[in-house]
């Protein structure tokens, strides 16, 4: 059986908000090390990989592997019934067909319980090799989100160029073109505003901005984001969690 407790329901709410626009139904695999999910979006442009280590829960128990086949939008609907600071517990018996969620407000002596039906989901998995990327950029998650939002007013696509001078985002559409360039920098007072670039060779890739904007909904999970790119390969975009990560593999645009 699985029993996993979080001190604040907001932790799971934010994670679900970060993935729900891309995923419909998917399996969450639970074992003694934690919860994991790997799922492709409908168009197979983005792969979401979520890892929630058992250390990230205030209490965690999972004696044997459990697969939770969930509709992510149904999960989001139920989570809306929890207050952000409620204590949240996830429970599922072995071979059960439901996930039980309880939301507790210890001050008000309120306990709500919801049972979510589980599904048998036949899911595709992709084998993602360990990759040394040509360029790695660590920057503020909020700044990335803002930059992409600004450029989406111009075009459906953004081009990202990384070289030793910095990282440049640019877009071109009917009304004109725009770009934002960030130089590498160290901000001693606000470390999350630093921009760190590790490079073995310059890279330039283009991406669809609608998908990118869905990915940056994970910005509420982490102050920084790690962007990794290699020419002609999907980018890896990672938001670190206290124990785990939400990672996106994002297929670039390719010349016909």
């Amino acid at each position: 059986m699985l029993e996993a407790k979080l001190d604040a329901a907001s932790q799971l709410k934010k994670i679900v908000e970060a993935i729900r626009d891309m995923l419909g139904e998917c399996n969450i695999e639970c074992n003694e090390t934690g919860l994991a999910l790997q799922s492709l979006d409908k168009s197979h442009i983005v792969l979401v990989s979520l890892l929630l280590g058992s250390d990230g829960f205030s209490e965690y128990r999972c004696d044997r592997g459990v697969t939770l086949g969930l509709n992510i939008n149904s999960l989001a609907t139920v989570l809306r019934c929890a207050n952000n600071d409620d204590i949240l517990t996830l429970r599922s018996e072995d071979r059960a067909n439901e996930l039980i969620l309880t939301f507790e407000d210890s001050k008000a002596d309120r306990i709500s319980e919801f049972n979510l039906r589980l599904m048998d989901i036949d899911q595709e998995y992709l084998a993602i090799p360990e990759t040394e990327y040509a360029a790695t950029v660590v920057m503020s998650a909020a700044v990335l989100q803002r930059t992409l939002r600004d450029l989406s007013a111009l075009s459906e696509a953004v081009t990202i160029e990384i070289d030793k001078e910095g990282i440049r985002f640019s877009a071109e559409g009917d009304l004109g073109k725009g770009s934002t360039h960030f130089k590498p920098c160290v901000d001693m007072e606000n470390a999350e505003n630093s921009i760190n670039i590790t490079l073995s060779e310059p890279v330039s890739l283009s991406f669809n901005l609608q998908y990118f904007s869905n990915i940056t909904k994970a910005s509420s999970l982490s102050s920084t984001v790690t962007l990794q790119m290699t020419a002609g390969m999907p980018a890896q975009i990672e938001y670190k969690l206290p124990s785990g990560h939400v990672r996106y593999y994002f297929a670039p645009k390719i010349e016909d």
Partner: peptide, 14 residues
């Protein structure tokens, strides 16, 4: 023209 390529093009399914 550019188009978005699905991820299977890059990674083998299993």
């Amino acid at each position: 023209h550019k188009h978005q390529d699905p991820l299977e093009r890059f990674y083998n399914g299993h």
